[in-house]
Amino acid sequence: MRLSIQYYDLILLGILASLVLGFAAGALTALSTAVTVPAAALIGIALIYQTIFLRGPVSSTDDLTEEVHEIELPK
């Protein structure tokens, strides 16, 4: 089985990396982590914004008109 990394996997890694970067900046510099973590979280917010609004999981608005059918799950 071949492992592949997709766009949304990279976005999740980017969000995690921004928070780790904020913590590391607070721990390794004179700046407080109460300042650096929220500041670095802005990078994560930008990634989330781009993923949801600019490059969403649908190709076109026609994808949104498909009817969803209910499935029965085994008990």
Rank of each mutant, 00 (worst) to 15 (best):
V20Q: 06
T61F: 05
G26L: 08
T29V: 14
P38M: 09
A24W: 09
S32F: 13
G22P: 04
I11V: 15
L73K: 04
L28S: 11
L73Y: 07
P38V: 14
I5F: 15
A39H: 02
P74R: 02
T36D: 05
M1K: 12
A27V: 08
V58T: 05
R2S: 10
S60V: 01
L13T: 10
I71G: 00
E67D: 04
L19F: 07
M1A: 14
V35W: 15
A40T: 05
E70L: 08
G14T: 00
I52W: 15
A41W: 00
L54I: 02
L12Q: 09
R2Y: 07
T61Y: 04
I45D: 02
I15K: 05
L16H: 09
A41Y: 01
V58A: 07
T33K: 03
Q50W: 14
A39T: 11
V20W: 09
A17Y: 07
H69G: 05
A24Q: 13
G44I: 10
I48P: 00
T33V: 14
H69C: 02
L21I: 10
L54V: 06
D9A: 10
G14N: 05
I45T: 13
I45W: 05
I43A: 07
T29Y: 09
L3M: 08
G44K: 01
Y7S: 08
F23R: 08
E72L: 01
L42H: 13
E66L: 02
K75A: 01
P74E: 03
Y8F: 14
I52Q: 11
T33P: 05
I48S: 04
L54T: 02
V68C: 01
L10G: 06
S32C: 08
T51W: 00
V35M: 15
G44R: 02
S60D: 07
G26I: 03
I48E: 02
L10E: 07
A41N: 01
V20D: 03
A25V: 08
A30N: 10
P38K: 11
L73T: 07
Y8S: 13
A17Q: 04
L64E: 06
A24K: 14
L21S: 09
A40N: 13
P74Q: 00
Y8G: 10
L31P: 04
L19H: 06
A25M: 13
T29W: 14
E66H: 01
T33D: 03
A25R: 02
Y7V: 06
R2K: 08
T33R: 11
I15G: 04
F23N: 06
R55N: 12
Q6C: 07
A17V: 06
E72C: 00
A17F: 10
